[in-house]
Amino acid sequence: MTTTTVPSTADTHAPPGPWAVETHGLTKRFGDNVAVNDVELLVPRGCAFGYLGPNGAGKTTLIRVLLGLTHADAGTMSLLGHRVPRHRDAALARVGAIVDEPRFHGHLTGRQNLKILAAAREPAARGRIGPALERVGIAHRADDKVAKYSMGMRQRLGVAACLLGDPQLLILDEPMNGLDPAGMREMRDMILSLVAEGRTVVLSSHLLDEVERTCDAVAIVDRGKVIRQGPISQLLAGASLEVQVECSEPGRAATVLGATSLGAGVAVGPEGLGVTLPAGTGRDVVAEINRVLVTGGIAVYRLQVLQASLESWFLQVTSRLGEAP
């Protein structure tokens, strides 16, 4: 993707306020199934925000409700400070979104599809078609029919469609789908560049590694409810501490550590002894583990504190939910 910049008015048209997206008690039901369950979501402006959850957690449904693609059964919401659905037109004027797999008129070219979408926006949107196509890297295929596009190219065209409105807020639902590794990297760079321009990007994905690399804050949704949200650094600070120990007698080491009052969970695996310490454990506990083992006559070859990742934290959170009655 190139670094062409879409002419920006991202900092001029919205009412002030700290939140790009704000929902309170938002609920959406399909019959007995509660797809969005009393969601309280606060997305700060000017950041990349990940919206994470397993399949069927209600991510796409929440996005559809936010965008007015379907109505909410309860709750309030606002986009860029505009209450929706009451001021939906004003809110969506500066919102770009991809929901689900982006689909277009296959018999038209990419450029013609964008013309249709630009016509539904303000007159200036027509002038953004070329730069948007350049920015997402499909300008050379812009005059080919969309029916001939790959999935990845349609994703890029979807992002180009988002850029037509010079959005302050972009909501991208699984934007990495269909992209090859190079395409994913380009998409990541583009998202970061959009954020650098002062725009807010909400990224719905289950690709945790990509989200961790791209986003500043996340919300975890499961079974329609937001169960955690906040800056990634804060959330990971609440994750348990993993320590990998390579020693002479892993089995005995597990027994020795289990008998202490460290509160550690111990497991012996092919890579050695794995020790899980509760969240908030200080680094001195790592030294205590080493002392206990050496005192017990066990030779310690390596002792490594594993950096908590979004993936491991996500799995911890969701596994706890799974264990809940």
Binding site: T12, H13, L42, C47, G198, I227, Q229, G230, P231
Partner: peptide
């Protein structure tokens, strides 16, 4: 629902756009 730090938004890594309240 457990929501952490709802009271104040986390400081964004980039300057958030702040513009006039009146839209064109």
């Amino acid at each position: 629902t457990t929501v952490s730090d709802l009271g104040t938004p986390p400081p964004p890594p980039h300057p958030a756009p702040s513009g006039p309240a009146v839209a064109p």
